[in-house]
Design a protein around this nucleic acid. Sequence first.
RNA 1: GGGCGCGUAACUCAGUUGGUUAGAGUGCCACCUUCACACGGUGGAAGUCACAGGUUCGAGUCCUGUCGCGCCCACCA
Length: 887
Amino acid sequence: MTDQRTIDPSTLPKHFDAPAAEQRWDETWQERGLYHYDPSRPREETFVVDTPPPTVSGSLHVGHVFSYTHTDLVVRYQRMTGKNIFYPMGWDDNGLPTERRVQNYYHIRCDPSLPYEEGLTFEAASAKVRKKRPRLVSRPNFVEACQQLTREDEKAFLALWRRLGVSVDWRQEYATIDDHCREIAQRSFLDLHQKGMLYNSDAPTLWDVDFQTAVAQAELEDRELDSTFNDVAFGVEGSDEEFVISTTRPELLPACVGVACHPEDERYAHLVGKRAVTPLFRVPVPIFTSDLVEKDKGTGILMICTFGDQTDVIWWREQKLALRQIIGLKGRLLPVSYGTEGWESLNADAANEAYAALEGLRPVQAREKVLELLGEASAAATGSEVPLRAQKKIKHAVKFFEKGDRPLELVPTRQWFCRLLDRKQDLLNKGDEIKWHPDFMGHRYRVWTENLGLDWCISRQRYFGVSFPVWYALNGEGQPNYDEPLLAGVDTLPVDPTVTPPAGYEESQRGQPNGFMAETDVFDTWFTSSMTPQISSHWQMNGERHKALFPADIRPQSHEIIRTWAFYTIAKAMAHEDVVPWKHVLISGWILDPDRKKMSKSKGNVIVPTELLDKYTSDGVRYWTANARLGVDTAFDEKMLSMGKRLVTKLFNASKFVLAQEGPVKPITNELDRGFCHELLAVVKEATASYEEFEFSPALRATESFFWARFTDSYLELIKARARNEEDPEGRGSAIAALRLGLQVLLRLFAPVLPYITEEVWSWIFAEETGQASIHGAAWPSETDFAAVEAPADPGGFGIAVSALTAINRAKTSAGVGVGRGIVTMVLHARQADHDRLAPVLGDVLAAGRVQAHTLQANEELAEGEFELSDVEIAPKPPKPPKPAKG
RNA sequence: GGGCGCGUAACUCAGUUGGUUAGAGUGCCACCUUCACACGGUGGAAGUCACAGGUUCGAGUCCUGUCGCGCCCACCA
């Protein structure tokens, strides 16, 4: 019989040195390849994560820490259950935010007409350089600049993830602009095109005048704006009659192409079929009815302009109205000429004169000008002709690009679309096949899908993105044939059509009659990021790997991108292979500031993650995030972070105590020890069930409350004496064995949340003892750990002991002494049944309470499990032990 | 306008399928140098479970309505 291996606490630091441990263990884990995916193991044993690729051009914020830790908690649990983990990391670097940042940082602009310049380098622009005009560079050069800067940004993210202990397999790293991702995205395009799901068309499209690009429905955002209903009088052709419409966009008056009222509106019924005449521009336009008109909004009759809103587009199409586009791609009023075809007017000269004052203005400026003109006309007129009648202030929702600063306009442009509207029901069905956590988040997906109004506009007029693998043949006049685009061959991907000519053409034919031209648009960034599961699985490129990694097990993400990232990923997986891309979606909530407002840079309430880690350590921060349930927003609360740090310290100290107890190796036979193990097993089961549902928070709660209340505060106190009692080797060995089992199991229960402290303690003795070098490679606790421990005779025996000890502590506290003080004598009252239950563990209770003599007394009036003391004689304070001589 | 979520102690939050006296941590009060830990321990006070009805032997939990907060969605006249 050998003694247990122990540690010498005096060789350990007084406090856990978290920063040193974080660095040391992270390096060790990377070196050992602890997080590596093993492609040789079958799919059933594999747990695949579709990690969100963070936008690297954005700064790090506490929300990143929050949601990525949530994923890591789930992953670390799964790893401990023996799963082969596939946990990649991508960087989402293509897209507008990156472009904006690169333009500012290097002070450059992209001019796609320029040729590529070999060996062009970029440096951060000085203040002096910034005063000059930005340097114009070719698209490939601009893309290089973007790649250069994003690589820098990625380093900061990587450092944060490493320190946070996010257990990613860094060999599975990708960037959404790298060749691999570009190839996957272009393959996706070709596959969808081949399946007839793509089309390009020249039609009114939501257009951001600042970014100068089309945007998709999913990127819209409503913003409440102050506006004004302006009452404007319209004439009726061939009559003196007038009617009044209310408009918030008088600047579109020159683009008016129709007037509509509700079919059951008697006020205007006599006008239907006649033509209205617009004020100022004297344009005759048809008056028709539509159910879409609300009788009690404004004056109940309205003007249709090309284009004020999406309803205008509907009417314009249905009624085959004229196209009078006055707002250009740059958001200014275009030059137009009344009296020409499509720009009919009863008085072209007056119309052109009025419009001359508007040309070149922005919509807001033009609005004022039109009102001014209407006012002048009103003043000049006599009698009944009062074009501008009244104004009414209102607030209304206006559509913005979510990243934009000015309202979107509807401008006819040629764009590529992916069909969605004809597949709504299939999309809804696919959504139902996925398990959403929490499940009400699936509702968001459903609502969004049901309300889809537009096909997905996948083309963007930007530069730093994935190119369309598309050219257009030019005819003899140099006009492109958009109906039969020239597509790249799959074996030529990834391809940049602005650099490479299509098959069958020479580069010299670019832009020439009978030659070709490249599609210069790039994909919507979601077109690429909607392929993250396939990017990881090497779809179409490695069939075996794809089979092993697709569909994924989990997709963690936040709720504001359900309509984009989750939606498009589902749409793509369905279109390509008619499957769902993952089994589960895990939605993390947001971090709110202490006032429960969303944190944002503009509010200045953003918390820098690295500062948080410095102050509260990685484990402390992870503890805080682990306390939030999925889908629930969390107010930032420094106290929770302190609690995490406190837990780490307690674990460190309790571990020191447990592993310093010397004694013989013996089986766990003592009734109290068995009772303790029995309760711990229940916690193991609870935590396991919770993690199986991806709910880390209840698991942590159960583990933590057991650790504090049952392990450190109670069990450790109850067995202290026995663990050192040399006259009772069986009891002593049982106590030490149970202590170690308890600690070992608790460490593993804590391991997903607190990877550093648990690994540190594990390394002292357990690593060698179990043959498992890392706790993160150890098995998740289960019944197996307790197989050698017999069930206690009384399952509640441990609880009884704790109650009795609490009664003793209460007596000491009310006597004003510490719990360390002895009791000379006391009478312990309880129901007879409870005395009987207490008997097997009474020795430990009396020792922990330092009770020298006692009498038991039955008292059936007490509640079940309740203990009371009377006739307590507190021991006198022991004399201070002599101070050890110095030196 | 429609929908989803939330409202429990001063604060942050738990509370399984309805079931004894509603819990935890923080904070607060009192006490304790204690031999793993003062980054500690012991004990205590503190709640009209937003409000109003209803179902039930029994409601924080189920139903209806109201109020408040947050979010999502909706054709901007």
